[in-house]
Amino acid sequence: CLSAAAMMMKMMKMRRLLLVCVFCALSVSLCSGACAEVDSDTEAVAGEPFKLGCISCKMRGEVEASATVDWLFKARGEADFVHIYSYDGEASSIIDERFQDRMEWHGSKKTFDLQDASVDLLNVTFNDSGVYRCIFNRVLSYEHYEFSTIATKLVPLTVVAKGTTTPDICVSITVFSVSTLFVLQTFFFNYRKYLAEYLAIASESKDNCAGVQVAE
C-alpha cells in the first residue's frame, strides 16, 4: 500500500514534468520565433512607407532548407505581372526602375532558410496600387535527396490619401496569439495526460490497500 508521502512524491514529480513541458513549449514559441503565417495589410497611405507582408512557413521545421524570393507587381489596369524585386538570402536586387531606391528587405535575417519575405515599400505613390505576388522558391534538404517547392502569396494593395491601415501592434498581437494558442494546447494536452496517470496511480494504490486489508 502506497503511503501518503509516496503519493505526494509522485504528484510532485508529475508536476515538475508538466512544468518542464510548458517551459519547452514557451521556449519554442517565444524564444525560437515559431513561424506564423499572417496576412499582409492591404491599404497604404501615399507618401508614407508600407510593409508588404509575405510569410510562408515550412511544414516541418526540423528539415534543413534554403530559399530565394521574388516579388512581382501588376499595376491597376494592367494584365500581366512584372518582376520587380528578388532576394537570395545575402543580397537583394530591385529590377523595375519604378521601385528603384524604394524597396528594402524586411524579412528573415542571417539565414538562407527564408520564411518571412516581407519588404518595405518607401514613399508610396498612388501608382503603387495593384496586386503584388510574392514567390518562395524553396529547396528542402533530406538525408539522401532534395525536394523543390514553390509557394505563392498575393497582396492586393490600395493607396489612399488618408488611410486606416492596421497598426503594427495589431499584427504583433495576432502573431503572439497564435504562439500562445500553441502553448495552451500543449499545456492542456500534458495536463490531461498526467492527470490520467495520477488517477491510475491513485486507483492502483487504493486496490493495493484493499488487498492488504483483506489479507489481514
Results as ranks from 00 to 15, higher is better:
V20G: 02
F73I: 05
D96K: 00
K110D: 15
K74M: 14
A25E: 01
V28N: 05
V38S: 01
A36I: 07
L30Y: 15
G61F: 02
G53Q: 11
G47N: 05
E37W: 02
S40I: 07
V82C: 06
Y85T: 02
L30S: 07
A36T: 09
F23C: 14
G77H: 14
S56G: 14
W105S: 00
R102N: 06
S108D: 13
L30N: 12
S86M: 08
G47S: 06
L72Q: 03
A44Q: 01
S32F: 13
W71T: 01
Q100S: 12
E62G: 03
T111I: 13
S93E: 11
A65V: 04
K51W: 04
K110A: 14
V82F: 06
F23H: 12
V45Q: 15
L19A: 14
I95A: 06
R102Y: 06
C57K: 03
G77M: 13
V82A: 09
C24V: 13
A36K: 05
C21S: 09
F99N: 02
S86L: 06
G107Y: 02
S93H: 10
K110V: 13
R102E: 04
S108T: 15
M103P: 00
I94T: 15
A25L: 06
G61L: 03
P49K: 02
A65M: 08
I94D: 04
K74A: 11
D70P: 00
T42G: 09
D41W: 04
S27E: 12
V82Q: 11
V28G: 03
L72H: 04
F99Y: 07
L19K: 12
K58N: 08
A65G: 07
D70V: 08
K58P: 01
C57L: 03
S32K: 09
E90C: 08
V45G: 04
D80S: 15
S93D: 08
R76N: 04
A67K: 00
L30A: 12
A25Q: 01
E97N: 10
A67V: 10
S92M: 11
E62W: 13
A44C: 05
L19W: 10
D101P: 08
S29P: 01
C21F: 04
F23N: 14
A46D: 10
K51H: 10
W105A: 02
S56Q: 12
K109A: 13
V22D: 00
S32G: 03
D96A: 12
I94G: 03
S86P: 08
W105G: 00
A79F: 10
F99S: 00
E64V: 05
A36M: 07
E37Q: 08
G107A: 08
K110E: 15
I84M: 00
H106S: 13
F81V: 08
K51Y: 06
V28L: 09
E48S: 14
R60W: 07
R60D: 12
E78H: 14
Y85L: 02
M103Y: 02
D88S: 06
D39F: 07
C35I: 07
D41C: 08
K109C: 05
Y85S: 01
I95R: 09
G47H: 05
G89V: 05
E78S: 14
K110P: 05
L72R: 00
S86T: 13
E104A: 05
S27H: 14
A36W: 02
E62L: 06
D39L: 11
